[in-house]
């Protein structure tokens, strides 16, 4: 995502939800930015909290937005579900200006959202949270048998992989045939 894309976002921002602030009072007035996910709900986040995300930090570091400009141009993350982005924003706020302790009790624990959370955190380049999430994924199979691992990590059997591969080839063949027929029709 480039700064141009975010600057031209035409989505009318919903009323921002202010995430809980860190207990430590900032010494200087903080700047805030706005982000939204697939659900268009805009989150107001301080620049300090956003520093956890290498992606967003890189985007905002040279913008020099005023408060009004920032509010008018929320960063759109259309590939991230709203509830997932909320989790990420909460985590960034809780860890504003401080490193994550090894045993972090404030980390997201919703396992049913873990897959999407990992993808989002990876996309936003939040290194510490990514390590934690990946550790959660790794721990899911600790002490499990291969059959249990296959279920937990949804690993298809060889037969299922072969069937899927055949199906994909068949589909590709049909598409190629369709394109050839279309091209022949165009030529006529």
């Amino acid at each position: 995502m480039s700064s141009t894309e975010q600057g031209t976002s035409s989505a009318a921002p919903a009323e921002p939800t202010t995430a809980p602030e860190s207990a430590a009072a900032p010494e200087v007035p903080e700047s805030f930015y706005y982000v939204h996910g697939k659900d268009k709900v805009v989150h107001k986040v301080s620049a300090g909290a956003l520093q956890h995300s290498a992606l967003i930090h890189g985007m905002i570091s040279n913008l020099g937005y005023t408060e009004e400009q920032a509010k008018a141009n929320p960063f759109p993350f259309e590939n991230i579900d709203g509830d997932i982005l909320q989790m990420v924003v909460d985590w960034c706020n809780q860890h504003k200006g401080k490193p994550t302790p090894p045993e972090d009790t404030n980390l997201p624990k919703q396992k049913e959202k873990l897959f999407d959370l990992v993808l989002a955190v990876n996309y936003l380049e939040i290194k510490e949270l990514l390590t934690y999430c990946c550790k959660q994924v790794a721990m899911m199979v600790k002490g499990k048998s291969p059959e249990e691992i296959r279920e937990i990590w949804m690993i298809p059997t060889d037969a299922e992989d072969e069937a899927a591969e055949k199906e994909a080839k068949k589909r590709a063949g049909k598409e190629a045939a369709g394109e050839t027929a279309a091209a022949a029709g165009d030529a006529k």
Partner: peptide, 21 residues
């Protein structure tokens, strides 16, 4: 990233799940 955080025994068992794994 995930594999880096797994122990070798888990990775070995994963390798037994399927050829793709």
């Amino acid at each position: 990233e995930v594999f880096k955080l797994c122990e070798p025994f888990e990775l070995y068992k994963l390798s037994k799940c399927s050829k793709r794994a």
